[in-house]
Amino acid sequence: MQLLLNAIASAAILAPAAIGFTLIFTLFRYTNFAVGALMTTGAFAAWGMNELGLPIWMGGVFAVVFGAGLLLASDRIVFEPLRGRSGGTLLLVSIALSVIIDNVIRFAFGTQIRAFDLPLRPPLTFAGLRFTPETLWVIGISILATLAVGALLAFTRLGRALRAVADNASLASIRGLPVPRIEAAGILLAGALFGLSGTLAGLDLAIEPNLSLALAIPVIAAAIVGGLGSPLGAALGAVIIGLAEELTVAFISAPYKGAVGFVVIALVLLIRPQGLLGRPVERK
């Protein structure tokens, strides 16, 4: 049970970012590796506000806004001029972007490990489970955010428009949808989710500039496991990755937690390339 709780806590950190990642993938068909760097930025943004004396939740709101803005800016400067290039090229560019963002953070904040200004409290126990109040917050906020985004995509006009553009942008455009504006909305939403995940990661883990790779791989793994393109799948994928990570920590070796994402990606791609909830993608 304790293991399950830990797994859900890990999943709660990954889920919003995995949904954001999936959103970008369905809209533009490329793997944005900068997701880890953007999450790290979110963690630093929230931490910075916290350092200035604001409460953590305000730091989180700032991180969400900052993440949205940063992703939109990076899209306008870096990715938009490259639309239509191959997925591999865009992935390469996003890795370069990731290195740039990491090093900007390193430049500005150094390599020290930071943490939010949290009061030290003994962990709570309930039904034999040990957890901190922060863990509860992380899980609660993540579930709320996931449900909200799911509802947005499923029930609102914007959600319908986003799905239409992702499905077939030119058709959506013919039907009179303002495609560039909808794409921008999608980017803002994804960036906000990255910022949120970053804040949650900061609550749970240490905040340092070397976090990016450790964050990016499980997030991308969660999205792939869930079947790229399915937000619900991405959330489910996050739970599976979280569970696999905790099982690794419990039964194999804690340091190899970082390899879990990779192994799971490899397995899924071998056995069920379309992911759990995805449909097979036609070749070319």
Binding site: Y30, T31, F33, S86, G87, G88, L91, L213, I217, I220, A221, I224, S253, P255, Y256, G258, A259, G261, F262, V263, I265, A266, L269, L270, P273
Partner: peptide, 28 residues
């Protein structure tokens, strides 16, 4: 063998993951 059937992006991610796993192994 694990990943060669995959198209560009996925191979890229699997290889990245391989490199990170090797780094963890060197470390531990």
């Amino acid at each position: 063998l694990l990943s060669i059937r995959l198209s560009g992006d996925f191979l890229a991610i699997v290889t990245l993951g391989f490199a990170e796993t090797m780094r963890l192994a060197f470390n531990n």
